[in-house]
């Protein structure tokens, strides 16, 4: 039994490890969300949580019910397939209550987001080097955002 006495400190260490491991599992039981693993390696509740987020986008059909003029202009130009909120940002609040002023997008940052020249874009896509092309002028001085072709008489 002397071995046990002389190895006593090792049992204490082992005990400490056991306590540590046990507390890990206890803490884990508290911290891991209930619904974890319900469907897969994630919280099952995440799905309903995400579904409960307030809706931020109204969708272009909603915009078009009121802004028929803009819709008409847009649908006759090359931006026909570009969604209203792709440029204006999420505007569900405004669609619910038009007295909320959505403001106007800043064309200096907006247009280059899609049109900045890059070798990675398909050749056919209209793209410009903004510095050379507009020389710092905001794009809408020459292009009407809703129907940007200059030839279309869209110039404002």
């Amino acid at each position: 039994m002397r071995v046990f006495r002389d190895a006593g400190h090792l049992f204490r260490l082992a005990g400490l490890f056991a306590v540590g491991t046990l507390s890990f599992f206890i803490i884990r039981a508290f911290l891991v969300p209930r619904s974890f693993g319900e469907y897969g390696h994630y919280r099952g509740a995440a799905i309903s949580e995400i579904a409960a987020h307030p809706i931020r986008f109204a969708g272009h059909q909603t915009c078009e019910t009121c802004h028929t003029d803009v819709a008409q202009t847009k649908n006759s130009g090359k931006h026909a397939q570009v969604n209203c909120e792709a440029c204006h940002g999420p505007l569900a609040k405004h669609a619910d209550d038009p007295s909320i002023d959505p403001g106007k997008p800043d064309t200096a940052v907006l247009c280059v987001r899609c049109h900045a020249a890059s070798a990675a874009k398909p050749k056919g896509f209209p793209q410009v080097d903004a510095d050379q092309h507009s020389n710092g002028l905001p794009c809408q001085t020459c292009h009407q955002p809703h129907n940007p072709a200059i030839a279309a008489g869209g110039a404002k």
Binding site: R5, D6, A7, G8, H9
Partner: peptide, 19 residues
Amino acid sequence: MTLGSANVSPRALAIDERV
């Protein structure tokens, strides 16, 4: 840090050495 054990007898240290 001693974990409450002050046993540093030669036998205990020999066990430590082996472990």
